[in-house]
Design a protein around this nucleic acid. Structure first.
Length: 114
RNA sequence: CAAGUUGGCUGGAUGAUCGCGCUUUUUCCAUUUGGAAAAGGUGAGGAAAGUCCGCACUCCACAGCACACGAUGCCGGCUAACGGCCGGGCAGGGUAACCUGCCGGAAAGUGCAACAGAGAAGUAUAUUGCCCGCCUUUUGCGCGGGCGAGGGUGAAACGGUGGUGUAAGAGACCACCAGCGACAGCAGUAAUGUUGUCGGCUUUGUAAACCCCAUCGGGAGCAAGAUCAAGCAGAGCAGAGGGGCAGUGCGUCCCGUUAUCAUGUUCGGGUAGAUUGCAUUGAGGUUGUCAGUAAUGACAAUCCCAGAUAGAUGAUCAUCAACGAUUGGGCAGCUAAAGCUGGGCAACCAAUCGUAACAGAAUGCGGCUUAUAGGCUGACUUGAGCA
RNA sequence: GCGAUUAUGGUGUAGUGGUAACACAAUAGCUUCCCAAGCUAUUAUCUCGGGUUCGAGUCCCGAUAAUCGCU
């Protein structure tokens, strides 16, 4: 898991992001983003039952989380993000997921230095 | 050697860098709970799955009995309990090892048995047939009576074979056989097996149709429940001075009084949320001995072994092991060897490439069911060959 | 976590243990100068695997998929 301040934990917060947030799409992932009034950005990861069984869902979430964690020092604070996995082939390598995540983070201008 | 049957075990290993949960110690900050850092320890399964059963645990309900409803269903044992397991019996399948079985009751009652067929469960049956009598007639037709033997139908035809008997026939009668029931003996704890005598003279199937008999079952579930508790609404008390609004005192102001609100304070319930239940003590694990055919139990030693909460166990590599494919060697001949020539299989060796199952704890435990690549291993059967 | 229901032609539904029915759609034919309407025909592993029964879409057991509910 991410370190505790970076997690978006409560159901109500996720619902707010889903309702009022802006979205960015990629063939693998959908990113929803909404401003909060905190110093850090918080993240939640979603994989619906449509994606696969429990092993596949956990695997996708862990890959996304690892990709976000690697970029964490370069990210700007003050946003709540929800990342939703779309369907894909089963054994997806980490590099593919990592490029998808960084592409989306660029698109919503979350990197501190451009 | 070939073809099978069946039981058990395993479910990749080691290391490096970055990262996460829990926990112990130390340090720092806050000092009511706590937060941060460093170091050490530890971190998914044989099915964690399906949720099909059974328990523990928690809350609710509860005098007793009966009815209803549901589940189970050969016998004995094991177990906390079970629809589970072990052993035995019976039935069916297989050459056999072995496998499968909701395997109590159809002479307590009710229902159902299509089509075909003369007739389908009733002390049954006539437009195939057999026999007798009468009428007409002499081919045949009709009427009355007897019959279940033959052909044929069907999943199933009311015991089977042979004889006696008869107009023709029939358990109508006889012999043997099969089956049913009762009683007795023997083996066994029992299910059951077996032997003998007697009886009626054959009593269909279906209970995975209703039902009967025996045994068991109160309901809901850790999102149970417990504690704290924002917000919102509620109740009690106060409401001095000044004030708002409403009622009332004949009546506007004034004044008095009552209720209410603002306000203060106390209280119970309790949503979001938090803590707990809940993660060291259990129907626990490992090893050994003993009892038992076995399931299992007893005793001794030793160990403490996941605990998240949108949910930790991940990412990037390296080396080794496993399997598969390809290539080369290995094989045969020549030769001291290197090497050359030929090119069939397998073990084995090396290199390269590829593959690596089913699947992720969420209160815990005992089973069942289903999914599962590959590897290791015990026992047994049948067939063929050799001794 | 705990439950409930359903699965039948391409689609929507019927179906007492005994030949799987109806409507619409599709295809082909007939009819018509042509189209529509009408008429005729065709299209079913009753989700899958076992069992009970003479016989199963129906009864029993197990599995799979879909949908729904409580919280």
């Amino acid at each position: 898991m991410l370190p505790k301040p970076y997690r978006l934990r409560h159901t109500a917060d996720v619902a707010l992001v889903k309702q009022y947030g802006k979205s960015a799409r990629h063939p693998l992932i959908i990113l929803l983003i909404r401003k909060n009034n905190l110093d850090v950005s918080r993240f939640a990861f979603v994989a619906s039952k449509r994606v696969g069984n429990a092993v596949v869902r956990n695997r996708r979430r862990r890959l996304m989380r690892e990709a976000v964690r690697l970029h964490l020092p370069n990210l700007r604070g003050g946003n709540d993000c929800v990342l939703i996995v779309r369907q894909g082939n089963d054994d997806m390598p980490f590099s593919e997921m990592e490029t998808a995540v960084s592409c989306l983070l660029h698109r919503v201008h979350l990197f501190a230095n451009g």
